[in-house]
Amino acid sequence: MTDDERLAALFRDAASDPDAPPPAFGHDDVVAASRRITARRRSAAVAAAAVIGLAGLGAAIVLPGSAEQSTSAAAPAPESARDASGGRAGSAELSAPYAADDLESEGPGSADSAPAPPAPAAAPPLGPGDGACADRQDAGLRALVEEVLPDAAGAPPAATTDVCLPGTHRYLALQVDPGGAPGVLSVAYLPPGTVADSAPAPTELAAPTASGGTVLVSATPDGPGPAPYADRLQDLVDHLAPLL
């Protein structure tokens, strides 16, 4: 028996533990969880659309005739960029309610039709979450990410575990495929006092946030190709840091 064969036998034996507990899930559990996630994503899309619509309405009320007002000086650069991208914000109220239910069915790339999501310039940072366990698909975080990466609007959630993480964290993992570079885009918000003690991966960026926490962004390619959004991660971090 060669060394490799001996090792293989050891590994097989170690994995074939007769004392292993029975599987904690079955086919029905998987299907139910899958449907639950889809329903939750649809709800999140509806909620995000509602927030966007309300924000647009608020902007229209607070800044009537904003085109001729020099209000951009009070807004941080990303906000100015959003304003520049859309009279959409002002017109959102006129076109709403748009078909939020269809957001999920829109594939990546079709999200240009989604309204630019203008958070009010004076909005406080999102800050720590408040649940018992962190939502692995944080809707608020997703809405902010999609402001920078609108083509990620239809991206499905990436596989994560159900392990309960501290509810003050925010987490988002998307299976994305921008321009034929499929992979996982991960965004994590760590609340103040939490230190990322692991060395960042080559495609991971970190920055302190407005609430005193830390935002981590990473992209992992599915294959040997480039990481998705590799050239836009810095923009994403720069955008998220003042909003979290």
């Binding site: 998987v30 959630p157 596989a159 994560t160 299976q175």
Partner: peptide, 11 residues
Amino acid sequence: HVQAAFVALHR
């Protein structure tokens, strides 16, 4: 982990 992977696959 396995359940999460199967859920993602099912979707």
